[in-house]
Computed example of a mutant assay.
Amino acid sequence: MVSVGDTAPDFTAPKTDIDGDIEEFTLSENLDDAPIVLAFFPAAFTGVCTTEMCTFRDQMANFDDVGATVYGISIDTPFTLSEFAEKNDLNFDLISDTNRNIIDAFGIDMDFADLGVYNVAKRAVFVVNADGEVTYEWVSDDPGVEPDYDEVEAAASEAEAEAPVDSA
């Protein structure tokens, strides 16, 4: 599993933006938007996942204030994520990991074997700084537990404070 101090695994995947447009997203090409908050969730349109993404939505001003960019990530298709974002009025982009490459690279896959559902993302949050380094990680083995949003915001603020100053 990816930990604090590791370089975040680079990935390219479909991203659904807040207008419902779908385009390719590559982490390494977006590090200038750091700190980047990667909020993994098991599946759209489920109880705790919806609550989590709506809480990020409701606290987005706090993340904007510290210069952080938030992305939600799940195994859902970009089309499902577009509908999920629209229905919940989300104000941040969602990344589709239908091939499970991202959750595999981060080492955060889990199964709901009793339901016949396999290889979905654990609920997890990583903060990535402008150098691509993971500066914060939170991973839950219990899909019913949400992250400490204030702690995530503080970690993003700290990552922003450590960002190199552009002397141009």
Rank of each mutant, 00 (worst) to 15 (best):
Q59F: 00
I102G: 09
D76N: 15
E52M: 11
L38F: 04
F112P: 00
M60Y: 13
E23P: 00
D32W: 00
L115K: 13
K87G: 01
T16W: 07
S28C: 06
F11R: 09
T80C: 12
A85F: 01
K15M: 15
V70P: 11
A61K: 11
T46E: 12
A105C: 10
R57P: 00
F112H: 02
A13Y: 05
I75E: 02
P14S: 12
D19V: 06
L31E: 10
V48P: 01
P42F: 08
T16F: 07
F84L: 07
F79S: 12
P35S: 14
N101C: 04
T77N: 11
A43F: 08
I103F: 04
M110E: 05
L90A: 08
L27V: 05
N30G: 05
Q59H: 03
I18Y: 06
F41A: 07
N99K: 14
F11D: 05
I103P: 01
P78F: 03
A44E: 01
I103G: 14
D104C: 01
P42C: 07
D65R: 12
D114I: 06
L38P: 02
L90C: 07
A85N: 11
M53A: 12
S74I: 10
N101M: 11
A34T: 03
T16H: 11
D58N: 13
I103Q: 14
T12D: 04
A44K: 00
A68N: 08
D32P: 02
